[in-house]
Design a protein around this nucleic acid. Structure first.
Lengths: 135, 135
DNA sequence: CTAGAATTTGGAGCGTGCTCGAAGTCAAGG
DNA sequence: CCTTGACTTCGAGCACGCTCCAAATTCTAG
């Protein structure tokens, strides 16, 4: 299929598809027409989707490239692929925990402001407790 | 306290502290010595920590600036602060969900590679199922 | 008072991940 | 065949969030 359809079906732009290819994120060279235009197959599409999911978890491009290189190299380096993924999982979990932790602050702020808005709507009287709770 | 100590106690670099100030993330102007050097107080420190937590959840600098402006403007805009935080919470939760969802892929890959590594260590025999499971 | 460490400013530089522009080539319908 | 739109490459540009530099000034310990 054309690059446009691939872009449509994977949800990434054609620019990004070409960028990913330049960046070395492909496992096998993308098929081309005799005129030089890219023709993607289902397998290419699946791989691109994997890339987008790894990106969505914050894996940097260069790590995905490394992973693509390992996959391209064929069987025999599962140990390294495993290490790569495990390291990334540690990162992701840490980030997840950090976000969840700090989400509590946001929840708290929302509670506070909800209270203030209700009080304000009721009688425009409140004490801005900036000294104990900045913001 | 000095900028260096503030940096130490908040975990952000002195460069970043100055950058945040330039970017309009402060609620009130930072106190200065007669010579012009910054002197941070506990309240400044608390606000900086809030900023770092918002940053940690992915809130962009310009949103934090907007929030700081609202806080600086004093009581009366709780509605807007609330809207800002609620919008951000929606973002954060969506991102959280996306990460968690895609973490499953990583877990799956790890399971697969663990299996392959064990099999490989045992007898170096496996079928690289690239056609069904790229990567 | 003085030396040396810390801080100041404005602006430049950088890493990441796209995003786009220009100029030319290719593909498919009529 | 011809037109029109999609595609090609290469390199530049951009948004973001820092990070750093240089030269001047200030602070602090001895």
């Amino acid at each position: 299929m054309s690059i446009a359809e691939t872009a449509h079906r994977t949800g990434v732009s054609v620019h990004t598809l070409r960028y990913y290819e330049r960046a070395g994120l492909v496992v096998t060279p993308v098929d081309r027409t005799c005129g030089g235009q890219r023709r993607y197959h289902e397998l290419d599409l699946k791989w691109i989707v994997v890339c987008t999911k790894l990106r969505a978890t914050g894996m940097p491009i260069r790590s995905i490239r490394r992973y693509a290189e390992l996959v391209a190299a064929g069987p025999g380096n599962e140990q390294e692929r495993l290490a790569l993924m495990e390291a990334h999982r540690v990162d992701v979990r840490a980030r997840l925990a950090e976000i969840q932790e700090n989400l509590a602050l946001i929840d708290h702020k929302i509670d506070v402001y909800r209270g203030r808005v209700v009080a304000g709507d009721a009688d425009r009287l409140w004490a801005p407790s900036r000294l104990t709770d900045p913001g």
